[in-house]
């Protein structure tokens, strides 16, 4: 019924310079919301150096929904932190909204991998925090709109199934509930760039599918740029316009595929042959990446 079309921009991997492989898929992006240019990240110093990311180039178009998949520890969270301006690349450059990252040219919403809700604030106040910090809301926050903001927070909490928990403290919630509150905090200020680090990892399949649909609706409505890190290939296929597969640590982008299923997507679509085929191909790539035989940069000291 649907014309399921999966475009694979790249062919089998050869241990050649990585940048050139990726370039093809990204050439069409004129105004990237996020651009990593030959970004390398090395944690620690001296003998304790951990190379987390090696010369990664990646462009994410304005309003694009990109999913990032790859084996654990390959540097996915590191890419998100680069985009959020929390860390600086050791070499190379990162541009967000056309500027070097510190400038904060875009309104950013970020859901961290570990829900980092502040323990001294109720869920409501935690979710409201971005409104207290981010322009233009922070001025309105003092002036008048506190009740309006509260309504917005409550609506959002209800949407993710946390109705009635607004006045609870984080320790009174389960892991999955915390993760949903964490997601609300990332969304509440309608960010132009949404950085989601395994936002549904601790949730059961059904809640997860519900939230996929919520997130898709939100994306279709507001068209923020989304960078989603996930281990769930089905989730990546359902939500994303483009899926990037990363190699084992130190991470590089191995594969960059467009996903052209029609919107709005449904869970039923994930059982259709084209979708399954995409899943299997990605799965193969990750298996290969995990075994490490594609890592060309292992030779560095």
């Amino acid at each position: 019924m649907h014309t399921l079309l999966v475009m694979n921009s790249m062919h089998k991997l050869t241990p050649s310079p990585v940048g050139s492989q990726i370039a093809a898929a990204q050439r069409h992006i004129r105004t990237p919301a996020v651009e990593l240019s030959q970004a390398t990240v090395t944690f620690g110093r001296g003998d304790n150096q951990v190379p987390a990311l090696s010369e990664t180039s990646l462009k994410i178009g304005d309003g694009e929904f990109l999913a990032l998949v790859g084996p654990s520890g390959c540097g996915k969270s590191t890419i998100l932190k680069l985009a959020a301006g929390l860390i600086k690349p050791t070499t190379g450059a990162v541009f967000v909204g056309g500027r070097e990252v510190e400038a904060k040219a875009l309104r950013i919403g970020m859901a961290f991998q570990n829900p980092t809700l502040l323990p001294w604030l109720t869920i409501e106040k935690n979710v409201m925090m971005p409104l207290k910090i981010v322009r233009p809301f922070r001025h309105e926050f003092r002036a008048k709109k506190k009740t309006e903001f509260r309504d917005r927070v409550h609506a959002l909490l209800e949407e993710v199934g946390l109705k009635g928990f607004a006045n609870h403290y984080p320790w009174q919630l389960s892991g999955g509930m915390l993760q949903r509150a964490n997601l609300c905090r990332a969304l509440v200020h309608e960010p132009r760039l949404l950085l989601l680090d395994e936002p549904f990892g601790a949730l059961d399949q059904f809640t997860r599918e519900e939230l996929w649909s919520t997130l898709q609706d939100l994306w279709l409505k507001l068209k923020p740029t989304v960078l989603l890190v996930t281990h769930d290939l089905k989730e990546a296929g359902y939500l994303a316009e483009r899926i990037c597969v990363m190699s084992a640590r130190p991470g590089r982008i191995l594969d960059d595929s467009a996903v052209n299923f029609p919107r709005p997507r449904t869970v039923e679509m994930t059982f259709e042959p084209g979708f399954v085929e995409l899943n299997q191909r990605l799965r193969g790539l990750i298996v290969e990446a995990r075994s490490g035989n594609t890592a060309t940069s292992e030779v560095r000291p």
């Binding site: 959020a84 925090m129 971005p130 910090i133």
Partner: peptide, 18 residues
């Protein structure tokens, strides 16, 4: 102070005072 807690605000462009 846990860096993660600070990061949640830093990502929003919060000032040092915030």
């Amino acid at each position: 102070t846990e860096p993660e807690q600070e990061d949640t605000l830093k990502a929003l462009g919060a000032s040092k005072f915030d």
